[in-house]
Design a binder for these strands. Structure first.
Lengths: 261, 261
DNA sequence: GCATATTTGTCGTCTAGGTGACAATGCCTG
DNA sequence: CAGGCATTGTCACCTAGACGACAAATATGC
């Protein structure tokens, strides 16, 4: 495996230095949607929250939970990346979310009571803080500031899902890919690229197979391969060390503004 | 206009008696997603919240806010129904949400600061409580219980949007319509149907044109018309007073379980 | 009660993109 | 280092559903 998104030796130092607040992807701020919950808390809050957490270490592809599970914890990514997805009755996998360092996930299912709606697997070697439902709600109850932040994060997710929904309903595959790449570039801009970016280039610093992209945008793997080849031929993106670099961000952004080509 | 979803003379009495908690739509509980925020609050909380609210009366099709607006209020539906949608660059309208009596909306955009992401129009004559951002956040800060409920509602919306997303990515139009109808039947089960339902029948007590349905499920109006005609021919649904009755709910549910036919 | 606008229903026609089938390449593991 | 698995690339084929264009039926405002 390449060194893309390699978990930091000490995940904590990583969490504390992440800050994407200045990246804009035109309209929605991805950094906002993928807000770093943990680093938004004060030292004290962080301590109060993590003191009742368990650490989990996951290897790539390890399953954290599956739909139907009773597990009722909230999780925070300490290092690595978690893929959250749903499988339809026809067997098709749809990726709903990637959770990166510092992000909290599983929160939306706490208030449902019974069971998980989605699947969560480690997209690479990943470290997790696991917090029991009860501990987490207690924490929120006793830390109003943190509760507000939780509301902010859920709000961001609502907005983000809304955007994705609109895109899925009205854009063609090329546009959906363009949007995805720009968003992921914004998320991963915090981690410096293994092989350096040329001026003006954006690095999509996440390990994504064509199948992953297909599952993220609701398309078939073949179409993704073809469309990506097309974007490459036009010089909009290029492959570097098995991940994508956006050569001309404005090129892709124009694609988005124009809608379907 | 027919008497579908006619706002009650006194919206309050309506709000207080609504309770969909027993309706299940198989998997997700629509009633949960469309939780009645207002009636979930205690008498005291309700008073504290509404004392700083303004009442707005909207005629059918009145615009409450549009994308880009600076308006930063949260709203609660006192009577009627609000359509929340986004328009893509190509002019295609995607409906993200319908807010019914008692529901709160606009909340997800409070934490964004700058501007509205979506459009909101009255789907019929509608009464609204409008609460300023500041008042609302203060309210949440001083009423932890209510803050928790807000989190619960946002969580439900996240789950619901996730479901819709998965459906959009992997189901065909017929399945998406079936799912939509069942969900809306569950929501509107609280209001009794103007013309009575036969035993075992469900009434989709919402005013929806084929175009609306198309915008909700990401399809073209023509396809919706055809598919609905098909479902009618097969006896799964029937038209009563210009709204839809689900004659055989289990028929539609089977459709969902099987996935694409 | 009339005129206009909106909604429904039904055609062809056309295409984006799904599907299946392979070969080629690369990668990880024993 | 070899075999196996995952990923990419590229076909040819096919179909769900978009789109445009109507006519008919309804609703709504004046």
């Amino acid at each position: 495996m390449s060194d893309i998104s390699r978990p930091a030796a000490d995940p904590f130092s990583d969490i504390m230095t992440h800050d994407f607040s200045s990246i804009d992807d035109g309209g929605d701020t991805w950094s906002d949607a993928h807000a770093n919950f943990l680093s938004s808390l004060s030292q004290e809050e962080t301590q109060d929250l993590l003191k009742c957490s368990r650490r989990l270490d996951l290897k790539s592809r390890d399953l954290l939970f599956r739909a139907g599970d009773r597990s009722n914890d909230v999780y925070i990514v300490a290092g690595g990346c978690i893929r959250l997805f749903q499988v339809s009755t026809t067997g098709k996998e749809t990726i709903l979310w990637f959770s990166f360092v510092g992000e909290i996930f599983g929160m939306a299912e706490l208030w449902r009571g019974n069971s998980r709606q989605i699947h969560a697997v480690a997209n690479e070697a990943t470290q997790i803080y696991s917090i029991r439902r009860r501990d987490f709600t207690d924490f929120l109850g006793t830390h109003p500031e943190a509760a507000m932040k939780a509301i902010g994060i859920l709000s961001a997710r609502v907005r983000s899902l809304g955007h994705i929904l609109v895109g899925l309903a009205s854009d063609n595959v090329e546009t959906r890919i363009a949007r995805l790449l720009i968003r992921f570039a914004a998320v991963s801009s915090g981690m410096r690229c293994c092989s350096g970016t040329t001026e003006g280039e954006l690095c999509v610093n996440v390990r994504l197979t064509h199948q992953d992209i297909a599952n993220l945008i609701g398309a078939s793997r073949q179409t993704v391969t073809t469309t990506l080849a097309h974007l490459r031929k036009r010089g909009a993106v290029r492959m570097v060390n098995h991940h994508i670099h956006i050569v001309r961000p404005d090129h892709l952004r124009r694609l988005l503004e124009l809608g379907a080509a």
